[in-house]
Structures are given as structure tokens and as C-alpha cells.
Design a binder for these strands. Structure first.
Length: 835
RNA sequence: GCGCCCGUAGCCCAAUUGGUAGAGGCACCAGGUUUAGGUCCUGGCCAGUGCGAGUUCGAGUCUCGCCGGGCGUACCA
């Protein structure tokens, strides 16, 4: 060949180099272009249908890591897909920038928490930009900005106005390390969710949000949510609705008097078997009814209980302990006088803090009765030969009758109804619903959070900071001023804490606690709709435009905390008439976790994978592609199993197609190679469904298939001039624009187009090209594959059956056997059943 | 202990309402290209779906039991 002797200066000399592109140069090339074009700015006034795609906003701790890379890569597939499909997409970004780590860092470095916080935010923002996420940067917000937390404070006052924010004294979770109280949700197995210290109890007056008022609605409204079943279950368990009854017992006390004590039970049908009562040792009730004689014993026990940590209390096989209170309760159905005990196995803050103990039907009560030799009456007939202890299963009631009512013979549900009717008639009890959910404790004794906009006045009590004085801005404290001392550092900021009472003008003090950062994140999705509005928390019209969030993406670790609180806030705002929906997040996707070598990445294991290094080695696109292709989005990704090098190879392979396309831009694909066109249109059609059903990994696989088919068409098929090749390569670029924006843009440009491919639009799928000329039908005899037939896709059952039975190898298989039945599923399958 | 989810090639993973077990990738092997390595192109190897039963003409898919792994929960009366 002449080229061998005289190489063509352009096409062959640098052949090797020309077959790949410089990943980092490409990144540097497009970033400023996109910055300029700003293709993902969500326009409120766009006539396009609006969609809200939201990823849980990050906490600014250091730079982005693999976890951020994964969740944004997955989330971005959806957002970018929506843009391509013609929606106006709101995909905002911001930072959940209040919180303890910044405060701890500030103490260490003797600076203000804002320094650390905003430096990290800048780092992360730059990384996100390089990572090419389709965020609308114009809506960026930080919860620690006074412009934001002013409205957090405003919302707090609105909740207070409605009686949903209140103060009470109660034993609360206390983290001795962080020196602050914690919500129940932040205590995991008795340890501080954040720092791992063992949590203790303290009696403190704190602010609460009345989430319990919304318990039933939080439960009911889950019906319509397109959320992972796992998360819904977690929330249901957390809300913990149970049905039962309150039963009133008269308790005789020392002085000869008596008082009524109500207990909550889910098994009122077993009331005849209540042989003693147990009161939570740390409930006020116990202290009130204990006899003088038993008081010293009780007080010793109480002291011991208080000492025990939650961990000790939660040990499963721990023997039951308790003390007799010297009081007796009268069972309202049979007049029996039963002893009242105190124990730590009853919780003060659940139900009424007192229970009727039915050892025959409750294992915990049985254990206690065993320990203290208390009587047992069975009220449900256990099965024959039952030798167990408490019997909690189904069965007819026994030993459950008095002069006016009998439950005997009734199954549990009927017995419950009957006894509740009776108690209600007698006025000694009533049906009741109870929830495990507690009110949300929102006070925190720390500095770097949203100040609670309340002033405590010796004359007027708790006084709201007037709206026109919001925000209550944090004072300039730093370093040692922030050291935890058990009270908020704000309390020591004299200039800040001492104010005039807005009502009487007298000396008063600001509330020196700050809010749980989950308050900040309970409404940020609303703020994104009008992030710069300095006249209101959010513009109701803009919210109507965008909300609710159509797709929320984030980690499952927020299943009960953030998601429950956000749902609560939304319902409150609905009741206030400020929003017209009751659920903020229509659909939720929980991504898996990136692990390494089968284990969670951690410093101690030394198995951490640095996102920065991966990006440096393989580039943004290859890392994103790897994360998206790894498997179903909700599965964990073991980085050790992944091949970013392979991803990069694929991207280069795809990119190479764009250089081979030899037809002019805008060439009509009509008349191009039909086989390739079919692959292209099938791929586009299926890819849409795959993205919508979140099977992104399969979508990528299908894109690879299209790349392979196009390669083949160029090298050994219709050739690079065929317009079908252009159509296919452009489809590849558009598909890749969801996952690998740099490669896609580079391809787009090479094929003669202007940026940006991200907004090029999804090609129209030609239905005619989806129809196959023939399909393979399989013929089975007794379920075994005997023949394959090429048939028309619209062949009739009868024709297919005839063709199948006429087939030689089928005939052979049928030889000497009687055809009993033929199952035909045209056009794919025939199964011949022989006798 | 209780509840939920998952077990498909050496590895990561695909597989409409039950209907040909294999789409894609990694790793490996061979051939071609290349001065060589890598790249690139072509081809190939590899499981009968954790185990056992059941339903069915037909089961990776449905049912039951076991084994293995993961997640949640744990005195909430």
C-alpha cells in the first residue's frame, strides 16, 4: 500500500495518539464553557413542565468523598435525563452548614466556626463544579447564613404561635462528651450517634416540637409515597402506633385515701389476669404512692436505677428487679386488690408510666412474677401441653368473668371489644391509641446553630423576639469561648445574652440554646424555590411551581430523622395554608454505600479510597461511570470489584466513534443502514424506561452495546459514511451526557455540534424501527428445547403450532409418543406435552 | 429472639405477566495490529441460578423448609 511507503501526514502518523483524548485537558476545556452557558439554571417562567430533583445537601466536612461522588452521580442521571426529555428541572445545591464538627474544629484552632465551615464549602463547591453536576448554582444556600436562619427562627415562632413549640422539664438524653442534649433519634443503642459517647440522663427544661400531634397523619400519609419499603417500615416502627385501652385502677394510699391510676394496655382482654401493677421507678407516680414504710427501700432502688445507664437497662437477659411500693390497686373488673410495684422495666415516658401486669400473657410480667413470687392467672387458654411461660398466642379467653360480663370463650379480638365496651359502660376505662413517637427535643447547648428567638423575662416569662428584630445573629465567639461547659457558650456572652424584654422593657435574657441542625434541614427544600427572597421564608407561588420534590436522592441514614422532621414541617405548613401539599418528597431513592474489600472504608482499617486520587487517575467521567455502572443504585458498591480503568477504556472507545463519523452534521438518517438504526432506536427507547425505573447500570450496559454495534458497522458493516453511523454516535453522546458529561460534550463537538450536548434533547424514537421482521420461537418437547424457528412476530398460535410440529427435530423427539397437549405462546414459544 | 431483604460464570452484574439462563463489564486465554509493551480489533473459555422439596406443560422468577450473608429492631405494656 502506498501509505506504507509514504505515510499520510495527518491520518496515520499520530495514529496512536489520535485514538484517545486527554481526560484532564478535556475537563479543563469544558468547565469554563459550561460556566458561561449555565445550562442548568431553572427558570421559574419557563413554559416547560417543571420537575424538582433534589439530592440531600451535604455537611461541609472537608472535601467531597466517594459517598458524595456516588449519590451525585446517580442523582445527576435523573436530573440530566429530565432536561433531555424536555422538562424544566430544579436541581439545587446548598450546605447544611451548622453543626458540631465546625465548632470542635474552631475550639482546636482558636477561630470562629464560620472560618472552617465556609472554607470547606468553597472546597466542596469547586469539587462539585469539576465533577460536573447539573446543579443550578444560582440558588445555592447555606443554613448558617443569617439570611437563611432568620427564616428558621421565623418558622420556630410560627410553630410556637400554633402551640407546636413548647418548653418542658423532663429527663433527657445527655451526651457527656459533646456536652449537649440529644433527641431520641440521635441516640443509637444508648450511645451518641455523633461521637459514640455513652449517653446519660439529665432532668432539664428544654424546647420541644409537638411532633406527636401529627403521629397519625405521619403514618397515614405514607400510603401514597413512592419510597423504599425499608424506609417506610422504619418510619412506621418509629411512630409505633398501637391500639389498646386505658384502664383505671383505684390505688389505696397510706393515709387511707385513694387515687385513680390509669394504665395503658394493648391487651385489655387479659384484665382478669392482672395480678399486680408496676409503675416506672422514675415516674413521679411511684414517688407519690409509695408508703412511708417502703419509702427508704424505694429510694434506694430509684438511686440505683438512675445510676444504671441505658445500656445496662437495655441488656436483654438482665433479670427483672423492683420493689414493692406498699400500695394496693383495685382491679376494676373483679375488685381484687393487687400489689403495686416499682421497676425499671416499665418506662416513665411511655403510656402512663404504669402497667397492669398479666404474667399469664406477658413474658416480661411473667419473669417479674417469678422473681418475686407473684401469682399467675391465665386468661387465654394455651394449647394442649403448653409448658411455656407466658402464653401470648391466640386462643379462647378463660377465667375472665364477673357478675355482669364474661369474656370466656371469646377469641382475643372479640374479647378486647367486649371488655372495652364494658369498661366504657362502667366508666373505668376506654379504648385508646398510643404512639411510641415522642416530641422532638430541639434545644442544643452548643454555639454553632440557629439561636432560639425567645427572650426570658422575669416579668413576662417566655417572650418571642419580634419578627422585625430577626434574625437573632450569633455573637462573634471563637476558640476557648466555645468550650463546652454544660450550658450553651451563648449564655456566657454577656453583651449578647442580656437584653431588654420586648414587652415590658425590663432586663431580660435571650434563650441561650441553639436549635438542632435538623430544624435547618426540615425546610431547605422550600427555600430553594425562592432562595434570595428577603421578605419571606419562601414564596408560596414559587413553591407551588416546583414542589413537591419529584425525586429525592440520599442515604438511608436519614430514614427516621431528617425525613420524618421534614414531613412534619410540611404538614404544619400545610395546616398554616402556606403550602398546598402534605408530603414534601414524592419519590425517594436511597443509594448504597461505597465500601472497599468488603468493609466500610475507615481510617483504622486503612482501606479508604480517595476520590481525589481516583479523579486524578481516571478522570471525572470514568469515576462517575464506574459508580453508575457498578450495579443497582441501592446496592453497596465494593470499590475493589470495580474497574475505573475499564470505564475509561469504554469512554475512549465511545469517543473514537465520534471521530469516525464521516457524514455531515444534520444528515438525515433516513435510508441509513437499517440494522444499525434499529439498534439505535431500540437502545434509546429502552434507555428511557431504564432510567425511569432507576436501572442505570443496565442503561449503561445498553449504551455499551450500542457502541459495540456502531464500531462494528464502521469497521465491517455499512462504513463510516452511512448516516446511520452518525445517528448512532449522536445517540451515544446523548446517552453518555447523563453519566459522562465531558466525554459526551467532546463527542458532540467532534461531530460538528455546538455545546451543550446536555441540552440537545432526547432523540425521537421511530416506532417503526422497533418492530422486528422476525423473532426466534423456541419449541420444547416436555420442557426440553428441541428446535428454534424464525417466525414473523405476528404469527398466529395455530400457524406457530403447525410450524413447530412440522419441524424435523421436533418430529424426531415426538417419535412414538402421543401428543397430549400443545402450549403455544406466539410468537416466542411452543411446548409439546407428550403422554 | 423478632421483622425485612438478598444468594445467577473466577469476580461485578442482566434476564416483561413464570416461557431459549447471559445483555454489559472485569479477569483470563488465543489470533491480528505494533520494533516492543500497552492501546486497539477479532474470537474464545466459564454457571444451570445456595441446598432440599412442592405447585406447573414449563420455575432464576411462585410456595414451604433449611444453609449462608446483609439491614432494621430490641423490655414501648
Amino acid at each position: 500500500m502506498s501509505e506504507m511507503t509514504e505515510p499520510h501526514p495527518e491520518s496515520h502518523r499520530d495514529d496512536r495518539e489520535q485514538q484517545s483524548y486527554d481526560v484532564h485537558a478535556t475537563e479543563a476545556k469544558w468547565q469554563p464553557v459550561w460556566e458561561e452557558l449555565d445550562p442548568f439554571r431553572a427558570d421559574d417562567d419557563s413554559p416547560r413542565e417543571k420537575r424538582y430533583a433534589l439530592t440531600m445537601f451535604p455537611y461541609p466536612s472537608g472535601d467531597l468523598h466517594m459517598g458524595h461522588a456516588e449519590v451525585t452521580a446517580l442523582h445527576d442521571v435523573i436530573a440530566r435525563y429530565w432536561w433531555q426529555r424536555g422538562y424544566e428541572v430544579l436541581n439545587p445545591i446548598g450546605w447544611d452548614s451548622f453543626g458540631l464538627p465546625a465548632e470542635n474544629a474552631a475550639i482546636q484552632r482558636n477561630e470562629h466556626p464560620a472560618t472552617y465551615t465556609y472554607a470547606n464549602i468553597e472546597t466542596q463547591a469547586a469539587s462539585f463544579k469539576k465533577y460536573a453536576v447539573s446543579f443550578d448554582w444560582s440558588r445555592r444556600l447555606h443554613t448558617s447564613d443569617p439570611e437563611y436562619y432568620r427564616w428558621t427562627q421565623w418558622l420556630f415562632l410560627k410553630l410556637r404561635e400554633r402551640g407546636l413549640a413548647y418548653r418542658k422539664s423532663s429527663p433527657v438524653n445527655w451526651c457527656p462528651n459533646d456536652q449537649t442534649v440529644l433527641a431520641n433519634e440521635q441516640v443509637v443503642d444508648g450511645f451518641c450517634e455523633r461521637c459514640g459517647a455513652e449517653v446519660t440522663k439529665r432532668e432539664l427544661t428544654q424546647w420541644y416540637f409537638k411532633v406527636t400531634d401529627y403521629a397519625q397523619r405521619l403514618l397515614d400519609d405514607m400510603e401514597g409515597l413512592d419510597w423504599p419499603e425499608r424506609v417506610l417500615t422504619l418510619q412506621r416502627n418509629w411512630i409505633g402506633r398501637s391500639e389498646g385501652a386505658h384502664v383505671d385502677f383505684d390505688v389505696a394510699t397510706d393515709g387511707g385515701g385513694s387515687r385513680s391510676v390509669s394504665v395503658y394496655t394493648t391487651r385489655p382482654d387479659t384484665l382478669f389476669g392482672a395480678t399486680f401493677m408496676v409503675v416506672a421507678a422514675d415516674a413521679k407516680l411511684a414517688e407519690e404512692i409509695v408508703s412511708d414504710e417502703q419509702r427508704p427501700t424505694y429510694e434506694d432502688y430509684l438511686a440505683e436505677t438512675r445510676k444504671a445507664s441505658d445500656i445496662d437497662r437495655m441488656a436483654t437477659d438482665r433479670p427483672k428487679t423492683g420493689v414493692f411500693l406498699g400500695a394496693y390497686a383495685v382491679n376494676p373488673v373483679n375488685g381484687e386488690s393487687v400489689p403495686v410495684w416499682a421497676s425499671d422495666y416499665v418506662l416513665a415516658d411511655y403510656g402512663t408510666g404504669a402497667i397492669m401486669a398479666v404474667p399469664g400473657q406477658d413474658q416480661r410480667d411473667w419473669d417479674f412474677a417469678e422473681e418475686y413470687d407473684l401469682p399467675v392467672i391465665r386468661t387465654v387458654q394455651p394449647p394442649e401441653g403448653w409448658e411455656g411461660e407466658a402464653y401470648t398466642g391466640a386462643g379462647p379467653a378463660i377465667n375472665s368473668a364477673n357478675e355482669s360480663v364474661s369474656l370466656d370463650g371469646l377469641e382475643i379480638d372479640d374479647a378486647k371489644r367486649a371488655i372495652i365496651d364494658y369498661l366504657e359502660q362502667q366508666g373505668t376505662g376506654r379504648g385508646a391509641v398510643n404512639f411510641r413517637l415522642r416530641d422532638w427535643l430541639l434545644s442544643r447547648q452548643r454555639f454553632w446553630g440557629c439561636p432560639i428567638p425567645v427572650i426570658h423575662c422575669p416579668v413576662d416569662g417566655e417572650v418571642d423576639v419580634p419578627e422585625d428584630q430577626l434574625p437573632v445573629v450569633l455573637p462573634e465567639l471563637k476558640g476557648a469561648d466555645l468550650k463546652p461547659k454544660g450550658v450553651s457558650p451563648l449564655a456566657a456572652a454577656e453583651d449578647w445574652v442580656n437584653v431588654e424584654c420586648p414587652k415590658c422593657g425590663g432586663p431580660a435574657k435571650r434563650d441561650s440554646d441553639t436549635m438542632d441542625t435538623f430544624v435547618d434541614s426540615s425546610w431547605y427544600f422550600l427555600r430553594y424555590c425562592s432562595p434570595h427572597d428577603d421578605t419571606q421564608a419562601f414564596d408560596e407561588d414559587k413553591v407551588r411551581l416546583w414542589m413537591p420534590v419529584e425525586q429525592y436522592v440520599g442515604g438511608v441514614e436519614h430514614a427516621v430523622l431528617h425525613l420524618m422532621y421534614s414531613r412534619f414541617f410540611t404538614k404544619v405548613l400545610f395546616d398554616m395554608g402556606m403550602v398546598d401539599f402534605t408530603e414534601p418528597f414524592t419519590a425517594l431513592l436511597n443509594q448504597g454505600v461505597v465500601i472497599n474489600q468488603g468493609k466500610k472504608m475507615s481510617k483504622s482499617l486503612g482501606n479508604g479510597v480517595s476520590l481525589g486520587e481516583q479523579l486524578a487517575d481516571f478522570g471525572v467521567d470514568a469515576v462517575r461511570l464506574t459508580l453508575v455502572f457498578a450495579g443497582p443504585p441501592e446496592d453497596n458498591i465494593d470499590w475493589a470489584d470495580m474497574s475505573p480503568a475499564g470505564s475509561l477504556r469504554f469512554l475512549q472507545r465511545a469517543w473514537r466513534l465520534s471521530g469516525d463519523v464521516a457524514s455531515a452534521p444534520g444528515t438525515s438518517p433516513e435510508g441509513g443502514d437499517v440494522a444499525l438504526r434499529k439498534v439505535t432506536h431500540h437502545t434509546l427507547h429502552d434507555a428511557a424506561e431504564l432510567v425511569e425505573s432507576h436501572r442505570f447500570n443496565v442503561m449503561v450496559a445498553r449504551t455499551m452495546e450500542l457502541v459495540n454495534a456502531t464500531r462494528k458497522a464502521i469497521d465491517s458493516g455499512c462504513g463510516p459514511e452511512d448516516p446511520a453511523v452518525r445517528e448512532a454516535a449522536e445517540a451515544v453522546a446523548i446517552l453518555l451526557s447523563l453519566v459522562a458529561p465531558y466525554t459526551a460534550e467532546e463527542m458532540w463537538e467532534r461531530m460538528g455540534h455546538q455545546p451543550t450536548v446536555a441540552r440537545a434533547g432526547w432523540p425521537t424514537v421511530d416506532e417503526a424501527l422497533l418492530v422486528e421482521d422476525s423473532v426466534t420461537a423456541v419449541v420444547q418437547v416436555q420442557g426440553k428445547l428441541r428446535a428454534r424457528l424464525e417466525v414473523s412476530p405476528d404469527i398466529s398460535d395455530a400457524d406457530l403450532e403447525a410450524a413447530a410440529l412440522a419441524d424435523e427435530s421436533v418430529q424426531r423427539a415426538l417419535e412414538g409418543r402421543q401428543v397430549r397437549k400443545v402450549i403455544v405462546r406466539a410468537p416466542k414459544l411452543v411446548n409439546v406435552v407428550v403422554g
